[in-house]
């Protein structure tokens, strides 16, 4: 039994409403992410502005000695003290991600981590306690902390330069990875919105084809063989 025109129209309208509400939900999530992005942006701008102010103040003091805190003092063998860690799935904070694949969450932290012995698993703890002690005694830290970048600029660095460093650390550890995560999540939601729109367009096309069979469409235009 063929469905009537009204039944087809009702089913199509319901499917369209479902698709639209799915897109609306995605857009709502997107707008929340945009709000977070804008807030983080404002925080980063403020931090950067203060950082430049402190750096300018430090340079103003150093100018008396004909010095400028810049690339002339960079250590040519510098090693990164703060590095990113990317973990998949996280299961909380960042959330979202592309359908199917759990999102990758970025964090920035001190490298090497301050105390590697702190957070081990509980069940292995008792067994490996003795081994750990032996290992620690046998192999002293193979990768000692690289030099503090402040030392590139001398032993007695001005206070504004230290303040600038503090702000830079705050930006790098707290704001930048969160901005990167939000930006990635926004890109994933954008993709989902585009896919949902495409799916809706396809469904509409299919519904249109079902309601007006080919003969009617072609016949109406006078193409019947």
């Amino acid at each position: 039994m063929d469905p009537t025109d009204t039944e087809l129209a009702e089913a199509a309208a319901a499917a369209d409403a479902d698709a639209q509400s799915a897109i609306d939900a995605l857009l709502q999530r997107y707008l929340l992410l945009l709000d977070t992005y804008s807030t983080l942006r404002a925080e980063l701008n403020q931090l950067q502005a203060s950082l430049f102010q402190h750096l300018a103040r430090a340079n103003f003091v150093a100018a008396n000695r004909g010095q400028r805190y810049g690339q002339d003092y960079y250590d040519q063998r510098m090693q990164a003290q703060r590095r990113t860690t990317l973990t998949q799935g996280g299961g909380g904070g960042g959330g979202g991600g592309v359908e199917g694949a759990p999102p990758v969450v970025m964090t920035v932290g001190v490298y090497p981590p301050p105390t590697a012995a702190d957070g081990d698993d509980g069940d292995e703890k008792a067994d490996s306690e003795e081994n750990d002690q032996e290992e620690r005694a046998a192999a002293p830290n193979p990768n000692p902390n690289p030099a503090d970048p402040l030392r590139w600029f001398g032993i007695l660095t001005p206070f504004p330069l230290r303040q600038a460093q503090g702000l830079a650390i705050q930006a790098v550890e707290e704001i930048i990875p969160r901005l990167a995560n939000v930006s990635a999540e926004m890109a994933a939601v954008e993709l989902e919105v585009r896919r949902a729109r495409k799916r809706r367009a396809k469904a509409k096309k299919a519904e249109w084809k079902a309601r007006w069979p080919l003969e009617e469409r072609v016949g109406g235009a006078g193409f019947v063989a």
């Binding site: 090693q79 003290q81 650390i169």
Partner: peptide
Amino acid sequence: DSVTGLLLAGIGHV
């Protein structure tokens, strides 16, 4: 200044 500021945070690597 931007690079110096960020390198102060310890992200520079050669």
